[in-house]
């Protein structure tokens, strides 16, 4: 009888493998497990089994029955699932078609660079201030130690409104306005638009500067170097070479032009850096005592440094833009890239 039961199991499995429809499976179930099925007829022979083996045989017959039942259910379930899948597959989409909804907007590259720079300087404790773009001659020049008729005014060609009113040529007048209102310590940056009558591939009549000013007791030229080196390494990477060289600005003394190693040629010399291997990146210096005098600070008690940088210049280096006019042309194909 044991052999008969095992054979039943093998035969049924074999037939199930060939069954592909619900009906065929139901036929198999009836054939083996039905009231007139194979299992029933085997169990009829239970009487001829030795009485002591009967419980074991009964148990085995039940096991075979349960196993086969389970197996049939699972084949049926599998068949149902694959039928449903087939139907869903027919509802297929072309998932490679573009999705709906427009592209996200972009910020202007000048905004991006301004935000980045202001962020770095804010982390050094500088807070942001603003000043008027149509400025008085006094703030733009005179209070910054640039008297009328002084040749230093040649350094900054100027758009005039009237004799004493002009479009600010730099963000430095904000320094003066801040110091007039506030006692030291002062640690501010002033981003904004500035204007000079110049227009070509590398000059725009309107461009952006960020001015920095730090005045306190015992601020030194070493602090200026440290702060600006830290700043430039944040903007251009830790490996960037930085050098400070003497220069002249009427409102700082000593003054320093700050250069970085050319990011285009790594210092070997190229068209961008005029073969020098260095790029002028910002102007800086210790605040001139004349400026302190104009705002009523005691230059024996306080010292400070100021710096100014051109946002367009940094954006051009950062993004590889060679024509400054692109910033104000606002061609969609330009704006989309940032």
């Amino acid at each position: 009888m044991r052999e008969q039961l095992e054979k039943l199991q093998r035969d049924a499995e074999e037939e199930l493998r060939g069954a592909l429809t619900d009906e065929a499976i139901q036929v198999i179930r009836t054939k083996y497990l039905g009231r007139k099925g194979v299992l029933t007829s085997i169990l009829r022979g239970l009487g001829s089994v030795a009485p002591e083996e009967r419980p074991a045989m009964g148990q085995l017959a039940n096991q075979v029955k349960d196993a086969l039942s389970l197996r049939i259910d699972s084949v049926l379930a599998g068949l149902a699932a694959s039928k449903k899948d087939g139907k869903l597959l027919q509802e297929r989409f072309d998932v490679t078609l573009p999705g709906r909804g427009g592209a996200c907007g972009k910020l202007h590259p000048i905004t991006l660079v301004t935000q980045e720079i202001c962020g770095i300087l804010a982390s050094l404790g500088f807070s942001i201030v603003e000043g008027p773009e149509v400025e008085l001659d006094y703030y733009n020049f005179e209070a910054l130690n640039m008297a009328k008729d002084h040749p230093s005014r040649d350094m900054q060609a100027t758009f005039y409104i009237t004799e004493n009113l002009l479009l600010r040529t730099h963000t430095s007048p904000v320094q003066v306005r801040v110091m007039e209102k506030q006692k030291p310590p002062v640690r501010v940056i002033a981003p904004g638009k500035v204007y000079r009558p110049d227009a070509d591939i590398s000059h725009s009549p309107m461009f952006h500067q960020i001015e920095g000013l730090y005045v306190d007791k015992r601020v030194t030229f070493g602090d200026l170097k440290g702060t600006l080196t830290f700043f430039l390494k944040h903007v251009f990477g830790d490996d960037i070479g930085v050098r400070f060289r003497p220069s002249f600005f009427p409102f700082t003394e000593p003054s320093a032009e700050v250069d970085i190693r050319c990011v285009m040629c790594s210092g070997k010399g190229c068209r961008v850096c005029g073969q020098s291997g260095w790029l002028e990146i910002l102007g800086s210096g210790m605040v001139d005592p004349e400026v302190f005098k104009a705002v009523g600070y005691d230059s024996e008690e306080y010292t400070g440094f100021a710096f100014g940088l051109g946002v367009e210049r940094i954006a051009m280096l950062r993004y590889g833009i060679s024509d400054i006019r692109l910033f104000t042309e606002n061609d969609r194909r330009f704006l989309e890239q940032f």
Binding site: F221, G222, D223, T227, R243, P246, P254
Partner: peptide, 25 residues
């Protein structure tokens, strides 16, 4: 005096002035 200090710094060499970071408030 500041004009003379600039002359000294310029010839002494800006690159020889050590870098310091002011305290951040």
């Amino acid at each position: 005096e500041i004009d003379l200090i600039e002359e000294i710094a310029r010839i002494h060499g800006y690159d020889r002035i050590p870098v310091t970071i002011p305290p951040i408030p």
